[in-house]
Design a protein around this nucleic acid. Structure first.
Lengths: 341, 341
DNA sequence: ACGAAAGGTCGAACCGGTTCGACACGTCGA
DNA sequence: TCGACGTGTCGAACCGGTTCGACCTTTCGT
């Protein structure tokens, strides 16, 4: 394999000069630079990543810790991955992917061995056990998901409170007085998915403020259970005119449920979901929804992480907690209320 | 950061001895080994990955080249990723993920810089442009998907021919005489998805051998187009009693189509798909299907790749082309034919 | 009792980059 | 004319591991 010594010899200069010519870290005469570049080109020289990492203590690799949970929806996860990998590549970084169930040890391994310059954590739970490991690491970290304690890391998440308010207020404005909110199953909440509470509590507050009745329930995350749940709900609250879905499985199951009850959205029932546009397309869901923007969140996390790695953060490097504003994508599934059969 | 010199000093031995004690590559007295281990533990020593890679020319990282295509179904892709990452971790390797649209340059970069010890390629097309780059690389490669030319690489894929035969013969055995096969859209084939032909041709042959009529069509990959396609098909071939789906979008859309035509599987129509069990669960599809086993393929590819990296291949290292036997998962959607409407 | 073999440890070199300090040269100002 | 300075190049050291050959015991066979 050709190394920088070979290039230097071919160009008739010292190894250090070849290095400076290629990295541009010191001034080199135009003539020498050209000669070195040419030699490198002709010999097909590519710097050895390990050697460079050893010398610079920078690997140009970002660690990505994801957890492929069985009740997490695959399309959304893939969008996170895509947002992260694409952005990293644009900024000159490669991605080391870990989907290890034991995120703690994986994180410790890749940071302690200096394989990565920084880390992005996905699926961050309220009391995520990877956080202590991350704080002890020498490298910076960016999270997607809001933990209880945000010190020492940059955090990015959807503004679930605003999402809850938006859903309720949108239907309130149309004249609805009784709504149902279907959340993720309880075990997601127990695992630390506090965003479920954040959305639900904000929705309840908004409903109270408007004098609206809001029934809240946890739905199953799997078919056909969630279908049964939906049927039971519609039976239990015959006068409700709006359905809010913070539960992707519920959204995917709803078309079938509505058809079998011979109901139409929005004629008989107004519906608003909370999922990504990609998700809506995959399942061809006709419901308006709060865009959860996984690709965007992944992109933001990597951007900030790289800024921190490259020390481009302003003085005193204040850690950020940034919420993406929920955007309501109108797919025409809401209208003024009609009394259901 | 603590390095092996610190450990050696704490244990009162030479650096080389500390290395031997930790790696076990030379005999070391029990007493010294224990002292070194203890010192390493107490100091919290972790070897520097770059330095180790430089010295051993092995990184313990496997490159994973995936392409997140818009018409590829996300759940399946995620299963490949999971199969690959999990297996790699079990064998002591980390995963460098690239989803770069330009697979060629990504592949060249990670191999030339020796960041990876080997590479797994997903979505391999018949004339994949990454293959020449891979063959020129110093590291071994394993493919998921069958290219035209398999020299120099290990190849793993579902046996699509056998899958086609199995589908047809299963329905033939039940007494069906006229079937419809819905394949992936033509642009998938053009992109190099030769597996579409492999399944279809084998199915046609099997049908001919049994004296069965088999209508073949390419379906759309998106909703709601594929729904229209299915309706048109059922209109066009009213006497067909069986539906074979080598098109995931079609499988996902079928329940809605059947319901709106008031048809039931298998009472009115027998149905066999070709997708993974995970996919069936995500969309709660009630159709029997040929398991496409993405996780298993990912696992096999990594296993073989690691064997090659670690030179555990038998003499003369013959490259393998291994087909996974298609397994028919019975979900009760096939029965003896009944005349439709 | 002696030499060979085996077992255990050490020092030094090496992997392939980067980076620091020194130095040679040419230019400019006093 | 001399010194200060800036520019471009070089040699050497360093990053943190691994590995080779040499050396020193100890053990064993004869």
């Amino acid at each position: 394999m050709v190394n920088i010594g070979d290039v230097a010899r071919a160009a008739g200069v010292a190894r250090s000069t070849a290095s400076y010519a290629l990295t541009g870290k010191r001034a080199v005469s135009d003539e020498v630079r050209e000669r070195v570049r040419l030699a490198a080109m002709e010999l097909g020289y590519t710097p050895n990543a390990g050697a460079r990492a050893l010398a610079t203590s920078r690997s140009n690799v970002i660690g990505l810790l994801a957890q492929f949970l069985p009740d997490e929806f695959a399309p959304a996860m893939l969008q996170y991955l895509q947002g992260v990998t694409d952005t990293a590549r644009d900024l000159g970084y490669d991605i080391l992917l870990s989907s290890d169930a034991d995120g703690r040890s994986a994180l410790k391994r890749i940071t302690d061995s200096r394989m990565v310059d920084g880390v992005v954590l996905l699926n961050v739970a309220e009391d995520d056990d990877r956080l202590p490991v991350l704080r002890a690491a020498a490298q910076p970290g960016a999270l997607v998901g809001l933990p209880r304690d945000c010190t020492g890391v940059d955090v990015f998440d959807l503004d679930f409170e605003e999402a809850g308010r938006t859903m309720v207020e949108h239907l309130a404005r149309l004249g609805h007085r009784e709504l149902i909110l279907v959340s993720q199953p309880e075990h997601v909440v127990e695992r630390g998915g506090a965003y479920v509470w954040r959305l639900q509590n904000a929705a309840l507050e908004a409903a109270a403020a408007k004098g609206i009745t809001l029934h809240t329930v946890f739905g199953a995350a799997t078919q056909p259970d969630i279908g049964r749940d939906l049927h039971a709900l519609l039976d239990a609250h015959p006068s409700a005119t709006g359905l809010l879905l913070n539960n992707e499985a519920a959204a995917a199951a709803l078309p079938t449920v509505l058809r079998s009850r011979d109901l139409d959205a929005p004629a008989d029932l107004s519906v608003i979901g909370r999922y990504s546009d990609e998700f809506a397309r995959t399942f061809s869901l006709p419901y308006s929804s709060i865009e959860s923007a996984p690709d965007r969140l992944g992109r933001m996390a990597v951007r900030q992480l790289v800024r921190r790695i490259e020390k481009q953060v302003p003085e005193g490097d204040p850690y950020v907690v940034r919420f993406v504003n929920p955007e309501l994508v109108d797919r025409g599934s809401t209208a003024a209320p009609a009394t259901r059969q």
